[in-house]
Design a protein around this nucleic acid. Structure first.
Lengths: 225, 225, 225, 225
DNA sequence: CATGAATGAGCGTTCATTCAT
DNA sequence: CATGAATGAACGCTCATTCAT
């Protein structure tokens, strides 16, 4: 009953945090439950992106999901647990698409495919992505989920390896590639850009331009800056 | 909405005009007022970065600022107005430093100087920057402030022009440069990186790499791999 | 601004206990405040004794007191703090009367006077006394208040000393005297007895009978029971 | 209030009759039922004394009893019914022991034996006793249960009669004896006293001292001291 | 009968905002 | 103007109870 994660909470403590692990109380195994959980997360996503964090209350989520507030709390011990589950779901979906994209190509080609996926994902629900990023920073995530963020990076690391980047540099560069893409894609979403075809090549330019510059710095015997 | 007598509204306007009366938007000019406003914004910044948005309440801000909650509402009509003013102040400070940096060089050199300034700013108060970015997206800013973001972009546009970027492309590329830098610098702040010297060249690589790639795309018949 | 009391909370932690000391947030120094605090405690007492603990909610107390729920929380950080303050007030009132009674006599006479006071107090608000006793057992009281219970006992100890009880035995016997009286008086209250004149001699019989038996046991050279 | 078809209400009555149909008040007679009811009451007692009234919820009781919440409501129409049944059970157990004790002696000897039993009972589960006492005062008990309290008193009445107390006074004095003992024994439990041998003589002193004083009052022309 | 998901009134508490002093 | 007591809508969350399976 006490699968306490060894991670000590870092800081501000979700207001009503009990000692309970904040995992879903009930694993949604039955069809009924899955439907309910899905409805709750859909409602949470909808409210967050259509009305913003200030309208994101558990009562509002429950109402929009068409369930009672009591039911929501049968599946999630706290509001933050709902948020975490939503982050988890979106992260998994993105990661699945990234995996699929990267599995069909190698090196730069695979990286380009990942960029396309990232652009596509973000432009479909631009606000949601930004908000969840922000919440994620505030939330103590589970280990396996914190790792999920690294999973995406590992895909990039592999691509970089195939492109000849030394493994010592690959991890840092993969992180930079992610932050570059995220920065551009977030801004596009914020400005309501919806033209993937226009955004994609610019992200590619930034990513590949960055990698090229870095390889120039790293491997001497090459010309001017 | 404001129970104010319609009489002497001719002059100094202690309260932020809620209705968009476009005349005097400047903050209170008396010495006392400036001190109070500064104290409030300092308190707001401190609370946001040290305890996070959940601790950011008007009462807490007033208390830390050493003024009564009533006084706070003399200078700011709403909580969001405080946040907006803080964003404005930080933006102005950043813009001032950017202007200064860019005034002493040209082209790529000036751009590099701006990058240095941006990195420096963000790494000094990483959480505050992120939080204010987020709030800014949520808040309806005054027109002249929305323009302030564009002011920084204009500095970049000028650099790009000096670097030979066609003016038709410069605006978009300047925006991309900002988002690239912001993406990298935010992530660094989130990860508590504090080494400016390590971060700066990577941001430069991303920015200049992006620009090089874009110039290649725009002006064909000039490639090198 | 942080007058944190050095008393560490002992045990079960009122549900939403924050780290704040649960003392009144605002010492009621102004006339207005005293009136408000008094109204709140009166309301709390009334609800507890007329409708029982299940109806004793902060909202109900505030409503009956004629103040807003927000005001209640200006003066008391938690619901338990209200309860504690009520206990404190009632205890002080009882203790004051006991002190006064005991000051005018000595030995057995003083003890008899205390019994009269205790009977009088309990029969006036029989349910309230019982409920507060119960709550007191559940609540982590402040040191100086936990001591208040002992203050009453000390009055009895003094009487016993004057009656010739050895000081080694006096503390225990004083405690027993209190529990004997409390048991009888509580039961009378529960059964809605209102005749003080009928109850008083029976309590006296129990108290003095107990003391006589104890002195017989303690001092040998006296016959069988 | 009860959605039951009016048909076969002739026989075994699995649910506690909510309306005061006075026919079969006994608890379920089938083996399964008895086991379940016992488990529920055990769970209720355990939770009350180990975690207190605030943790005493129907869901918690059902879980600890190893039955579903639905089953609990098959046997008890409300939460209060569970509490009442627990009080009833504990009262019966105490009464049984008291009866047994009193059956082997007469007069003062029997009374002493009852005191021993009462002390023993309370010191074994001190919190539970106190909590149930409190709940009992709050709950509308069944008539035959309210009588159960009187049953114990009747045992004392008999002892007093054997000791020569006039039957006109015996009932009141028996009640006082009970409240004296309960007051002392409750307080001992509250203070975590566990030494029965130390408590017993003090209770005896109080009880017999009280009776002696009362007899002196009632029958004048017999004093000493 | 047993089950346990579902319900929703209601709890304790917060905080942006107002206004009498 | 400054103050800070007062307000109350709204929040996160619980739990006694019901009812479809």
């Amino acid at each position: 009953m006490s699968h306490r994660s060894p991670s000590l909470l870092a800081f501000p403590m979700p207001k009503h945090a009990r000692d309970a692990s904040s995992q879903p109380r009930k694993k949604p195994l039955q069809a009924r439950s899955i439907v309910t959980v899905t409805a709750i997360l859909d409602a949470a996503a909808h409210i967050l992106e259509s009305a913003g964090p200030s309208a994101y209350s558990t009562n509002a989520v429950a109402e929009r999901a068409g369930v009672s507030i009591g039911s929501l709390y049968q599946y999630f011990p706290t509001k933050d647990a709902v948020t975490r589950a939503l982050i988890e779901r979106e992260s998994r979906a993105l990661f699945a698409d990234l995996s699929h994209a990267v599995s069909k190509a190698h090196g730069a080609e695979a990286l380009r495919a990942m960029i396309a996926v990232a652009v596509h994902h973000q432009l479909r629900r631009p606000l949601l992505g930004r908000i969840l990023d922000f919440e994620e920073a505030r939330l103590p995530m589970h280990h396996d989920m914190a790792a999920a963020g690294n999973d995406a990076r590992d895909l990039i690391v592999r691509c970089l390896g195939e492109m000849g980047v030394e493994s010592g540099d690959a991890v840092q560069q993969a992180g930079d590639v992610m932050s570059i893409a995220r920065g551009m894609v977030d801004r596009a979403g914020q400005r309501s850009e919806i033209d993937e075809a226009a955004l994609r090549p610019r992200v590619e330019a930034a990513v590949f331009g960055y990698l090229r510059e870095m390889s120039r710095i790293r491997s001497p015997g090459d010309e001017r800056n």
